[in-house]
Design a binder for these strands. Sequence first.
DNA 1: GACGATAATTAGTCTAACCTAAATACTGGG
DNA 2: CCCAGTATTTAGGTTAGACTAATTATCGTC
Lengths: 228, 228
Amino acid sequence: MSAAVASEPLTRSVEDYLKAIYQLSPEGRPASTSEIAHLLALSAPSVTGMVKRLSEHGLLEHIPYRGVQLTDQGRRAALRMVRRHRLIEAYLVEFLGYSWDTVHAEAERLEHAVSDTLVERMAGALGHPSVDPHGDPIPSADGSIQELACVALSDVPVGEAVAISRVHESQPERLRYIASLGLRPGVQVTVIDRQPIDDLVTIEVGNEKQVIGRELSRALLCTHEANR
Amino acid sequence: MSAAVASEPLTRSVEDYLKAIYQLSPEGRPASTSEIAHLLALSAPSVTGMVKRLSEHGLLEHIPYRGVQLTDQGRRAALRMVRRHRLIEAYLVEFLGYSWDTVHAEAERLEHAVSDTLVERMAGALGHPSVDPHGDPIPSADGSIQELACVALSDVPVGEAVAISRVHESQPERLRYIASLGLRPGVQVTVIDRQPIDDLVTIEVGNEKQVIGRELSRALLCTHEANR
DNA sequence: GACGATAATTAGTCTAACCTAAATACTGGG
DNA sequence: CCCAGTATTTAGGTTAGACTAATTATCGTC
């Protein structure tokens, strides 16, 4: 019954939709129309329309008024885009002088234009990295992805020391700010204190104390492993 | 009187049209609708329609039934695309293991997706080359291009020694064949003989004799300068 | 169990870019 | 100088993907 076996190439916007849906719910929980619309900066009716087309093509399942979930085929296509995006980011940072705050926009366009060959050449030049400059894992070419268990800094108890493993942010200005605090993947931080209002967290980063807010503390994903 | 000063970004196909028109006539001679249609693999009416829109936007001038010519603005946009294409080709060959026969298709897609920043970074990594892997000159960022005087091999008199400077071909299979004959930019060849039928040319390339046909001898552009 | 807020969908348009079929203009030979 | 052949344009239609306005579902609250 599965439609569209001879998968014709996906369009740019189809690729964007699939990637967005995957990112809204890597675990496969249904994503809502309005979440997708918000993430892609489109109107809700546009999303409904596209979702209908994509479900006819077997890339996702749509239960009206309930949300959408990627099919295996859809998830494979989405992971392919995620792999491309993250490898391109890693390549641009490593070889072409990009910094982590400027690389997202460039990768966002290139991910639709590169061939599989080029992606794999870039992966080779990088030595097949497992994470991108923000610490996000790079799916393998066969579509498997290894999410390592991590906790948002907002959930780390006071007194604990953790390592930042991923920084979930893509706006250049915010990323520059985060970098200015000394925060990036691999850095060790200790939670010193937590305020009872606004969820402010005081942390120690390389002998300096920093106070960070709710949104940032949720964007910093950490691991406990002191081993390295 | 010139329309569209605040030039909104061009679409992919507009970029393709402008580049095609430039390539059909770098000197600015009018290009015909059907030449453009043939080069872009589109129908003639499609070209007429697009040409009308582009002339309204001030990118070219169209005299119905007579052909089109790029305006300054159009030529600038076209040269920008040519620069991108050739720099991308050079970069992929230099750093990512591409050979001159495979690089065209990749560059054809990437040229629409890269930012000006990325193009200039690639140029920097290459040391600001003046020619691409096929020997074609790379326009400068400010839109000037330096075509060096050259003659098609088909027009080189018998007995003369020349250097191949450019290879005007983009089909992978043909490029592999050309490479297999030892022909590429920079190589010295001597015209040994020319047949009175079919314009076959016998040349000497690195102590080997090769016979080449009409189409190839026209695609090989040569310079006389023995100086290097 | 009705009701209002919010989310989602349907209905109806619009634009860019393509197409085919038909009509029109140019051009070279008799 | 007319006419046939070719090149070009006009007419009309399609598709993908977006939009706004209007309608319909769902859900939490009283």
